[in-house]
């Protein structure tokens, strides 16, 4: 069972509290987006699940085991790609496999289908600096998929891409995920992206970071992103989430007014 159970999780950086007592359950093969404004701790939450950030209190249980370190059954996709500049496309895709003990030849041959899957066939020998941002993140995605994780953790993976590339990558991810379902935790600050991709959207607010709502996305799979955006239910969901995200600046505005500013 590739589920994630977050129990009473708190994280403080020194005296600065990021969030307190977060509880979240992600089911086996569920695609969950964590949507929130910057500073709500959504990235920190994901980094804790990935085992690259310490907790202050509480626990993360992955596949039934309390987890504090990076695990072989999870893989992380970063916002800033993080490709090794001195390795070619195929060796970057194979990198996770190499770290998990495969020989160079073995890792390359296991990585090859994932290079194809993300549409980079023919670019195996290129170096990252020779690729566009979108292509670099395809490598990042393929690298994570190549280790065949049960749980895919994605930290605003398309946040650094331009709008068109971003939508293309969302379509790709939908296609890849439909073909090979796994548990996904996807951090984003884009409402559209969260709706298009997820089974459920977890909305967070900041100061202090907290989960305010779980919103199921009732669209059937496989999905067509363009058709979804034209659907009235999409507009309703969008408005609902927007209202939740908007509460924040408004309420802090009101505190300012109440204190006489």
């Amino acid at each position: 069972m590739a589920n994630v159970d977050i129990k009473d999780l708190s994280k403080h950086f020194g005296s600065l509290g990021v969030f307190d007592d977060i509880n979240l359950h992600v089911d086996d093969n569920e695609f969950v987006s964590i949507l929130g404004p910057s500073g709500c701790g959504k990235t920190t939450l994901l980094r804790i699940v990935a085992g690259i950030e310490d907790t202050t209190a509480g626990s993360v249980i992955v596949a039934g085991e309390e987890s504090r370190k990076p695990r072989p059954d999870t893989a992380l996709v970063f916002q800033n790609f993080r490709l090794l500049p001195w390795r070619t496309v195929e060796d970057n895709v194979a990198y996770g496999l190499r770290l998990r003990g495969r020989s160079k030849a073995e890792a390359r041959s296991l990585a090859q289908p994932y290079v194809m899957m993300v549409g980079l066939a023919g670019r195996e020998k290129k170096y990252p600096y020779q690729l566009s941002g979108g292509m670099q993140q395809r490598v990042g995605l393929a690298r994570a998929l190549a280790v065949q994780p049960d749980i895919l953790l994605m930290d605003e993976p398309f946040g650094a891409l331009d709008a068109q590339t971003r939508e293309l990558m969302q379509d790709e991810l939908l296609r890849i995920w439909s073909a090979d379902r796994k548990t996904v935790m996807f951090v984003t600050h884009s409402i559209d992206e969260a709706i298009v991709l997820s089974d459920r959207v977890v909305v967070m607010q900041s100061d202090p970071g907290r989960i305010v709502e779980h919103i199921p996305v009732p669209f059937d799979r496989p999905r067509d992103a363009a058709a979804m955006r034209a659907d009235p239910r999409f507009t309703t969901l969008r408005a609902e989430m927007w209202a939740l995200l908007r509460q924040e600046p408004l309420s802090s505005d009101m505190t300012h007014r109440a204190t006489g500013e």
Binding site: I52, F78, L84, Y95, L99
Partner: peptide, 25 residues
């Protein structure tokens, strides 16, 4: 440092981080 963290996220050991990231970097 992001690349060091990337390696760690795939369960790299310290000596592998040296070989793959620190020395070439």
């Amino acid at each position: 440092h992001d690349l060091v963290e990337l390696s760690r996220s795939f369960c790299a050991k310290e000596w592998t981080v040296w070989r793959d990231v620190i020395v070439p970097g």
